[in-house]
């Protein structure tokens, strides 16, 4: 049986790649390979996963330099006899393939991303028109499951520590377009603040890397437009 060479990051910020040889199989994902190494060669290897079918987003890692869901990345599709696997970029490393995602999650909070409603259970539900432009804009951004792939793909995040990043701003975009959200002004103020949408260079790495095809680039462009309108006095938030 042919074998695949896998280079896996070991350690935290200080560390090195360790090579393993894994049997090549007909249908094999990168997550399968990491699991096989952990189960049959080195049980001290740390990594994260949960669902294994592209629902939870917890198995994201850098595969041959690109952030990807390892459970949805077939070894065959990489067209490479050597696979290099590292923890997600732009996040502190804890051990091996596990990163500390708390900074990434905190940035969601900093972008004003907690949904607030002025209504309670006694009020009738808001009638939301699914065909309104606002709702369509929110719907286009709303499927994000917070896996961190776009955050790892973003160069601006790597250059600028205060930048909130594509995931947090994409969430802010879905909220400012949600007619039920009662704190749109606060969300908008955070999204156009110092670490906000004005820092984005529209490189589109987030959009290219998103495993479910969302476009944080487009969401951030929407926030930029809204910010400029509000600074020019024509706010429609």
């Amino acid at each position: 049986m042919p074998h695949l060479t896998v280079r896996i990051w070991r350690g935290a910020d200080e560390g090195e790649y360790q090579s393993f040889s894994v049997p090549m199989r007909e249908n094999q994902t990168v997550l399968d390979v990491v699991s096989e190494v952990q189960r049959s060669q080195d049980q001290s290897l740390s990594y994260r996963f949960a669902c294994r079918v592209g629902v939870c987003g917890s198995c994201a890692m850098m595969v041959n330099g690109k952030p990807r869901w390892t459970c949805r990345t077939h070894i065959r599709s990489l067209k490479s006899g050597v696979v290099t696997i590292a923890p997600l970029r732009n996040m502190p490393r804890i051990k091996d393939l596990v990163t500390d995602m708390s900074g990434f999650i905190d940035k969601w909070g900093k972008a004003g991303n907690v949904f607030e409603s002025e209504r309670d259970r006694r009020d009738a539900p808001v009638a939301v028109d699914p065909s309104s432009p606002r709702r369509k804009a929110a719907d286009a951004a709303i499927e994000c499951i917070n896996c961190g792939v776009c955050h790892a793909a973003c160069d601006v995040v790597s250059w600028n520590d205060s930048y909130l990043g594509p995931a947090a701003l994409n969430r802010a975009w879905s909220l400012v377009n949600d007619e039920r959200h009662s704190r749109k002004k606060e969300t908008m103020a955070a999204a156009m603040g110092d670490g906000g949408c004005g820092n984005c260079h529209s490189q589109g790495n987030c959009m290219a890397a998103c495993p479910i095809g969302l476009s944080p680039t487009r969401s951030i462009a929407g926030l930029k437009k809204m910010s400029l309108m509000s600074l020019l006095g024509g706010s429609d938030v």
Partner: peptide, 9 residues
């Protein structure tokens, strides 16, 4: 907080 956004504009 809007200083950066104003420069951007």
């Amino acid at each position: 907080p809007m200083f950066e956004m104003r420069l951007y504009l």
